[in-house]
């Protein structure tokens, strides 16, 4: 039973990491129709900036310092995302394929720059020591860092929900995902909503980057690779433009992947792709996605 709980919670922790990257991807796609291949580089930028802050404090960071690293990493990634949006994406207004292509270029250039500066080897991330302690949940010893991932993801989900539900810009974003042309026709500046979504998506990815570098024991320009792909899968399964859908799908995929990996060694990725195929065949719009008119 305790192994069951351990695998389950580790899966949810992994799902939380997927959610951090997928939430931004999903909103950006839902609102603007941009398939953002640069999202992985937002994650990497956040991870490196977070690493820079955290390593100022030596081999070990206290929890407030770690939270500071997370926030600064997130902000840096958010600003970087904003820069990319203003500099490149807005100029290719409504040329969706070209927008996707430009983000591919951004991902390549960012990877090359970081690789050229820091090399592609993993650098140890100075995480708080208590991440290594185990928390007792139902007889299972859960590594403490998993709890941090889950808490961060839940916090971001709630924050996201509150923003979308209670603020004016949130209302514009929701309306824009629903029908962008109508919002435009009503004389509301949707561009501002675009920038907001890019910043928020970048922020979530940057925070995710710091956590991913803890999870994979260090930072390198290559850490984003599999998370971006899992982010895409989560977005497709959860439904484009639906943040709760992404959350649900991320948790589901994290848990299924961990269980499959445990009971059938190494089959986790394979099972996830089968799941993707099944969802596409039964519900092409995703779990909580709406059918586009």
């Amino acid at each position: 039973m305790d192994t069951f709980i351990l695998i389950g919670i580790t899966g949810i922790g992994l799902g939380a990491l997927y959610f951090l990257i997928a939430s931004g991807l999903s909103l950006i796609y839902g609102l603007m129709g941009v398939l953002n291949f640069a999202h992985g580089s937002f994650l990497t930028v956040g991870a490196f900036v977070g690493f820079w802050i955290a390593s100022k404090t030596g081999f070990e960071t206290s929890m407030p310092e770690f939270i500071l690293a997370m926030i600064v990493g997130g902000l840096a990634a958010g600003l970087f995302a904003l820069l990319i949006e203003q500099l490149l994406i807005t100029r290719l207004y409504d040329r969706h394929i070209d927008q996707a292509l430009v983000t591919v270029g951004v991902a390549l250039v960012v990877g090359a720059v970081l690789g050229g500066w820091f090399g592609n080897d993993l650098r140890m991330f100075p995480a708080p020591m208590w991440f290594l302690t185990a928390i007792d949940i139902g007889g299972a010893k859960i590594p403490a860092d998993r709890v941090v991932y889950i808490a961060t993801a839940v916090l971001l989900l709630v924050g996201n929900w509150a923003l979308l539900k209670f603020t004016r810009i949130g209302l514009i974003i929701r309306a824009g995902v629903e029908n962008r042309n109508m919002v435009n026709a009503l004389g509301i500046n949707v561009r501002r909503a675009f920038s907001t979504v890019f910043f928020l998506g970048g922020f979530a990815a940057g925070v995710g980057g710091v956590l991913v570098s803890v999870y994979s024991n260090g930072v390198s320009p290559l850490i984003a690779g599999t998370y971006l792909i899992y982010g895409f899968i989560v977005v497709v399964i959860g439904g484009m433009g639906s943040v709760p859908g992404s959350f649900l799908a991320a948790m589901m995929i994290g848990v299924i992947r961990q269980f499959a990996n445990y009971y059938a060694t190494g089959l986790g990725d394979f099972v996830v792709v089968i799941l993707l195929a099944v969802v596409l065949l039964i519900r092409p719009q995703g779990l909580l996605g709406k059918v586009r008119a």
């Binding site: 490149l88 100029r91 290719l92 070209d98 292509l101 430009v102 591919v104 270029g105 951004v106 991902a107 390549l108 250039v109 990877g111 090359a112 720059v113 690789g115 050229g116």
Partner: peptide, 13 residues
Amino acid sequence: AFVLGLLFIFVVM
């Protein structure tokens, strides 16, 4: 990837 990526962005834009 640096030079080719920049060239790529330039061509697309």
